[in-house]
């Protein structure tokens, strides 16, 4: 019995170490993704602990109090422990507030993107079913993410040491500009601008997808960001 407990404890610790290792070994390509990795790691570890706690409690209580004898309604007992309840309410509150505060700074960064000064402003316009990019202030700089004749994907080329402000909107229905590897998505809403501030992205290719249902070809709305 004791051995089993030790083994399961080791298993849990090993699992947590695995999560920790998994998210430390991969370097994040930009700061959104870095923040994502950091918070996700914390939350994943906490979640695993909570799930295991619940399972262990359920199994232990079940094993201990399992019985098949019936008792009459008269014998039913009520248990009540104010200290315990107040205790775990406080623990839960502290935990939740901690999670809230660690999530805050990037929230503000993202929300205030339109106030930031960037070297280049790129307007991103969603269409059914492709993206259109244009560099603001440069005439005839507009191009689409899809070559309609060959079906090739035309990448948006960004430079690593330049800062960018993406100004996202849509020409028809709502789309969502989603770059999973860069850790952000922002909706393209007709008549409305959303801003994303990009800096210091690692060199590489990042796939753009649409994440808001926009019609039959929603799944096939390709785009590519290439950082050189």
């Amino acid at each position: 019995m004791n051995k089993l407990r030790r083994k399961s404890l080791l298993f849990v610790l090993g699992f947590l170490a695995l999560i920790n290792g998994l998210y430390s070994s991969i370097a994040a390509p930009n700061d959104y993704r870095e923040k994502y990795d950091e918070i996700f790691k914390i939350q994943l570890i906490l979640s695993v602990i909570i799930i295991i706690m619940v399972l262990v409690m359920a199994i232990v209580l079940l094993r201990k109090y399992k019985s098949n004898e019936a008792i009459s309604p008269k014998e039913i007992k009520v248990f009540h422990n104010n200290k315990l309840e107040i205790g775990w309410t406080l623990v839960a509150t502290v935990l939740v507030l901690y999670l809230f505060f660690i999530s805050l700074p990037p929230t503000e960064n993202f929300a205030a993107a339109n106030n930031k000064q960037a070297d280049v402003t790129i307007s991103v316009i969603g269409h059914q079913f492709y993206w259109e990019f244009a560099i603001e202030g440069v005439v005839n700089s507009s191009f689409t993410s899809l070559n309609f004749t060959t079906g090739e994907i035309i990448p948006l080329v960004l430079f690593q040491n330049t800062t960018y402000l993406l100004k996202v909107t849509s020409a028809d229905v709502i789309h969502s500009f989603f770059v999973p590897e860069l850790g952000f998505k922002v909706d393209a809403v007709p008549g409305h601008y959303n801003y994303v501030y990009l800096e210091n992205i690692q060199k590489g290719e990042y796939r753009v997808t649409c994440a808001e249902y926009c019609g039959v070809n929603h799944y096939n709305m390709p785009g590519l960001i290439k950082v050189v």
């Binding site: 996700f40 999530s103 990037p106 929230t107």
Partner: peptide, 8 residues
């Protein structure tokens, strides 16, 4: 519900 995670 955590915004940096929700962005993904």
């Amino acid at each position: 519900n955590t915004i940096p995670l929700d962005l993904v």
